[in-house]
Design a protein around this nucleic acid. Structure first.
Length: 587
RNA sequence: CGCGGGGUGGAGCAGUCCGGUAGCUCGCGAGGCUCAUAACCUCGAGGCCCUAGGUUCAAAUCCUAGCCCCGCAACCA
């Protein structure tokens, strides 16, 4: 087999400066979990990794606004991320954060290797300096009037009004967000730069090579950028104290720029995972091109992150040589709300942690997959959520399970009936659903999750049609053996659909697995742990797949197997849910 | 200004690469079934495929010009 065994599923690192909303989940967090669960059932050696991004000005700005330490902000939101991923069932083999000793080590090591290989140089930059606060003002620490459109709300690096970018020193009437000081001076400051000009050629060669399986929004963007823009040195250090320190002398009050250290998280999380498992060299199975060139690395992200994952990070890896580069970067567009971006400040936000209190995890997994913004921005509305859960998930799949299990349990004393000879109709349904392992499998494999879901839903509709034609509730009165055969076929099909749905609906598939009288867990176990290191301790979310028995193949349901008393898999939502939630959101 | 994505029946989407009777889910209308969470099954109504040109026997699909929406532009998924 030339199928790769080792798959690394990298997930965008969330900034630990606010709660996650359903847009984050639909765009970048749920899709990789569905993909990873599918691949694990295929027997692949999957590592799904991410962590909270602890550094950067969004964190320190918030910390200063609240008068607490950045670490406190990170710990608070990191814990909420872990909590919501547990509840939603996102099976991270490791979800850590970037303020760990391991991440510091890996980042500094990469800095040194880039330096030694000649990809890092030192240069000076002009930056605004706040004499009152005695510090430099990177990025969002400064606001002012936009040099292009005169908006007064312009940030240090970009104007939200007209969208243009510029250097902070170009701002008109700049003011410090720390002290409010408007009497800012321009000072020279020395920084280290990653020399991307040296990487442009190999990066472009890599982007031009193959990539036919990449989504057009990702590959078109990356190619045109690298083709048309002359890449230049980009600063990888900043005048800040909060961040990974620079492994060189005379670098006080400077640290490594967050963009550089955050993407290294994919590598550092792998080594942290390997160390936690006491197999420190295992990371090579995914990253080291000499050890395992067939490993595939996937990066699931939102479209805003395309430049970093399709350009910067690959360039950094190319510079190291002998590292596996991303195999695919399935970036999603955005999930909006009523036509506009989610916005915390404007009260348009649906926190995933909050809504998981009221609705089933699998209901969200279904609805967010159904409307996943795979090719264009998509609008979320509560009406749509209710409609999809009630009229699609409950009506099509949940009801199929309920009608078959309920009938079987009542009429055959809680046991899987023994079938007689199969008719052409029986065989036809079995063949069609069995073929779903191939057809839906290919769609899951290529991360076309919406299409995979449609395929599985089509198959469960076929089962509903079969039942209508076979009408076992009618034949049982005249020909009990034929009714038994129909119900056996339906149960077998449900047993297979359980697997086909499992990547998207792991919780209810497990429940169905048990209703059908099976033991064991289709998937592994999620758990949290506190890890101590030289920088303190940090909470991690982990996943142990060793006891999982779910496999991507049609098993055989044994006649005579004891069923469990069935209950509906999904809660049907009340009519007024949409109204209530919409009202609550606008308060 | 530049770049990327999108514009398909009431809603959400697929189809566009490799032209050939416009497809799916939901909603709506009618009928059927009654095992089932009033769910399920069948049939039906409903579309200038953004616009204007062009290529072609034939264009949602290819070419040209333009319009509209979203995003990116070095980090807000």
């Amino acid at each position: 087999m030339d199928q790769p065994q080792h798959l690394l599923v990298g997930v965008a690192w969330p900034y630990a400066n606010g709660e996650q909303h359903i847009g984050h989940i639909a765009g970048a967090y749920l899709p990789p979990d569905i993909f990873a669960r599918f691949q694990r059932m295929r027997g692949k050696s999957v590592l799904m990794l991410s962590g909270s991004d602890a550094h950067g000005t969004p964190i320190t700005v918030r910390a200063e606004a609240e008068g607490v330490s950045p670490a406190e902000i990170v710990d608070r939101f990191h814990a909420t991320f872990v909590d919501s991923y547990l509840k939603l069932g996102l099976t991270f083999d490791l979800f850590t954060h970037t303020d760990t000793q391991n991440h510091w080590d890996v980042t500094q090591q990469m800095f040194r290797r880039h330096l030694e290989a000649g990809y890092i140089y030192k240069d000076s930059q002009q930056q605004l300096y706040d004499g009152t606060a005695h510090r430099f003002l990177p990025d969002r620490y400064v606001e002012g009037r936009c040099p292009f459109c005169d908006s007064d709300e312009a940030r240090g690096d970009q104007c939200d009004q007209c969208g243009r970018t510029y250097e902070a020193v170009e701002l008109k009437q700049p003011r410090s967000r720390i002290s409010g000081n408007t009497d800012l001076e321009i000072r020279e400051t020395e920084h280290y730069f990653l020399d991307l000009s040296k990487l442009q050629e190999p990066l472009l060669a890599w982007l031009k090579d193959g990539k036919t399986h990449w989504r057009p929004n990702v590959i078109h963007f990356a190619r045109t950028q690298v083709e048309q823009i002359k890449l230049r040195g980009r600063p990888i250090t900043r005048d800040m104290d909060w961040g990974v320190s620079i492994p060189l002398p005379d670098t006080e009050h400077k640290c490594i720029y967050v963009w550089y250290d955050a993407v290294i998280g994919y590598l550092s999380a792998t080594t942290e995972w390997a160390q936690l498992n006491n197999t420190p060299e295992q990371w090579r199975q995914w990253w080291d091109a000499k050890t395992n060139p067939d490993a595939r690395i996937y990066n699931f992200i939102g479209k805003d992150n395309i430049p970093f994952h399709a350009m910067m990070w690959p360039a950094m890896l190319i510079a190291l040589q002998d590292m596996n580069l991303p195999y695919d970067v399935p970036a999603n567009e955005f999930l909006n709300m009523y036509g506009r971006k989610f916005s915390k400040s404007q009260g348009r936000i649906i926190s995933i942690l909050d809504v998981l209190k009221r609705y089933q995890a699998d209901a969200w997994r279904y609805a967010l997959t159904a409307i996943a913004p795979e090719t264009s921005d998509v609008d979320f509305s509560w009406d749509d959520f209710v409609e999809r859960v009630n009229n699609e998930l409950v009506a099509n799949w949940g009801n199929l399970v309920n009608r078959v299990l309920g009938f079987a349990y009542k009429r055959w004393d809680g046991v899987v009936p023994t079938p007689g000879a199969l008719s052409g109709q029986d065989q036809g349904l079995l063949d069609e659903v069995r073929a779903g392992f191939q057809s839906a499998g290919e769609l899951y494999e290529s991360a076309k999750l919406k299409a995979a879901m449609n395929e599985v839903r089509r198959l469960s509709q076929r089962a509903n049609q079969y039942l209508h034609d076979a009408a076992p509730w009618s034949t049982i009165k005249t020909d009990p053996q034929q009714a038994a055969t129909s119900i056996y076929v339906a149960l077998q099909v449900i047993d297979w659909l359980k697997i086909l749905w499992a990547p998207i609906l792991p919780h209810s598939s497990q429940q169905l697995h048990e209703f059908l009288g099976y033991d064991g867990q289709l998937f592994g176990r999620q758990y949290t742990e506190t890890v101590k290191d030289a920088r303190g301790e940090h909470l991690v979310l982990r996943y142990d797949n060793s006891a999982a028995i779910g496999t991507w193949e049609p098993g055989t349901l044994n006649p005579g197997q004891d069923l469990k008393p069935p209950k509906p898999l999904f809660v049907k939502l009340d009519e007024d849910v949409a109204e209530k939630e919409t009202a609550a959101a606008s308060n």
